Amino acid sequence: MTRIGSRTTGRPTLAEVARLSGVSPITASRALRGVSTVAPELVEKVQVAAASLGYVANPAARALASAQSQSIVVLIPSLSNHLFIDTLEAIHEVMRPRGLEVLIGNYHYDIAEEENLIRNYLAYQPRGILLTGFDRSDVAKQMLAASGVPCVHMMELGGEAQAMSVGFSQQEAGRAAARHLLERGCKRPGFIAAQLDPRVMQRAEGFRQALAEAGMDAHAREMLAPQPSSIGLGGELFAQLLQRHADVDGIFFCNDDLAQGAILEALRQGIKVPQQVAMVGFNDLPASAHMVPRLTSIRTPRAAIGRCAAQALLGLLDGKRGQVQSQDLGFELMVRESS
């Protein structure tokens, strides 16, 4: 077979794929993008043709031809946090049947880095953007507003007028942790946190408010570290808190890995959990239910947030009106042996 290919690159073209598979270029494009309305037998023909030709899609050319890409941008602050992995998986599950590519930007909790990512991704004319929270630079906010690209915010609620958000109240989660420790009889509860991003500090504020309402010193027993959250850091912060406040009898950790590290450090020091110190984590990561003792934690709807945020964004792309601006998916306190 004589192959024409692109005049400029010599690479196989979509037109060749369509011709070889006996479908129109539009159908070939949709089949390769995974659009669910294309019949399975046609998808198979197009995929076989593409494979035989060595065809690779050119998203830049497609965006130029349509004045818009078929990409959705997702900006998250960490790829090492299990929380965001679950969310990303759910987003992919929603977007894939629509033939939309998911581009992931990791800004490492740095708003300047996020601003650069937003600037670079907007140049590719994405169909929509999923953002984590509301904390970003004024320049980033201006670029997003001027672009007209539909946006949905994840993990937090409210934050900006007319902004669509999917998440839960971080502050109420902190209050729930405090109330649980108080109900368990803790008289001197403490708080341990790392990373100190806006959502962590919202949880801290809720925790402090609940203690203040109970007549306790809200800041008396806290360890706040700017480093990334980890099991090792959790053990270190727990030991430091005990050195400073040996009377602490309950602790809320801003993330489960910190609490997991504290449980291991308590084991090393011969401290009984929860008899001497009760512990409550956050996010209910997979290992938490298997710790010794099993960790009490606040379960967050990570996958549901990704799924609902992606669906909300598709609604904006489809021009649907009357969507709920703020979707509160709530959280669940998983009471286990550590408290």
Rank of each mutant, 00 (worst) to 15 (best):
residue 213 E to Q: 14
residue 309 A to C: 08
residue 51 A to M: 07
residue 215 G to S: 11
residue 97 P to E: 01
residue 211 L to W: 07
residue 196 L to E: 05
residue 179 R to S: 11
residue 28 A to M: 05
residue 269 Q to E: 14
residue 70 Q to H: 15
residue 213 E to A: 12
residue 49 A to K: 05
residue 227 Q to T: 14
residue 131 L to F: 03
residue 43 V to S: 13
residue 80 S to Q: 12
residue 166 V to P: 03
residue 39 A to N: 14
residue 79 L to V: 10
residue 232 G to Y: 06
residue 230 S to G: 10
residue 236 E to Q: 15
residue 58 N to G: 08
residue 298 I to N: 02
residue 113 E to Y: 07
residue 3 R to W: 02
residue 128 G to E: 00
residue 41 E to D: 15
residue 285 L to A: 10
residue 203 R to T: 02
residue 63 A to W: 07
residue 272 K to D: 05
residue 72 I to A: 01
residue 286 P to A: 10
residue 286 P to L: 05
residue 268 R to K: 15
residue 140 A to F: 02
residue 122 L to N: 03
residue 224 L to Q: 11
residue 139 V to K: 14
residue 118 I to W: 09
residue 280 V to W: 13
residue 66 S to T: 11
residue 216 M to Q: 13
residue 80 S to M: 07
residue 243 Q to D: 15
residue 26 I to G: 08
residue 67 A to V: 06
residue 124 Y to H: 13
residue 201 M to Q: 12
residue 168 F to I: 04
residue 27 T to S: 11
residue 171 Q to T: 03
residue 322 G to V: 08
residue 299 R to W: 10
residue 213 E to F: 09
residue 191 F to R: 13
residue 146 A to Q: 13
residue 9 T to A: 09
residue 41 E to V: 14
residue 283 N to W: 10
residue 168 F to Q: 04
residue 123 A to L: 10
residue 78 S to F: 06
residue 241 L to P: 05
residue 100 L to K: 00
residue 212 A to V: 04
residue 263 I to V: 15
residue 338 S to V: 10
residue 150 P to Q: 04
residue 34 G to V: 02
residue 1 M to Q: 12
residue 296 T to L: 06
residue 96 R to P: 07
residue 279 M to N: 00
residue 43 V to D: 09
residue 113 E to I: 06
residue 170 Q to S: 12
residue 303 A to T: 03
residue 37 T to P: 01
residue 107 Y to H: 15
residue 105 G to H: 10
residue 201 M to C: 09
residue 33 R to G: 14
residue 169 S to P: 01
residue 230 S to Y: 11
residue 319 G to E: 00
residue 230 S to M: 11
residue 91 I to G: 02
residue 3 R to I: 07
residue 196 L to R: 08
residue 109 Y to A: 13
residue 25 P to H: 02
residue 35 V to T: 01
residue 254 C to Q: 15
residue 163 A to V: 03
residue 125 Q to H: 12
residue 251 I to L: 14
residue 226 P to C: 14
residue 25 P to S: 03
residue 30 R to W: 07
residue 287 A to F: 11
residue 51 A to N: 12
residue 46 V to W: 03
residue 96 R to N: 04
residue 264 L to E: 14
residue 313 L to T: 01
residue 144 L to R: 05
residue 260 Q to Y: 11
residue 32 L to Y: 00
residue 37 T to D: 13
residue 174 G to T: 04
residue 220 A to L: 10
residue 216 M to W: 06
residue 164 M to W: 02
residue 107 Y to R: 07
residue 7 R to I: 13
residue 108 H to W: 04
residue 166 V to A: 01
residue 62 R to M: 08
residue 333 L to V: 06
residue 242 L to F: 08
residue 57 A to E: 04
residue 218 A to P: 03
residue 236 E to V: 15
residue 182 L to T: 01
residue 177 A to C: 14
residue 247 D to L: 12
residue 221 R to S: 04
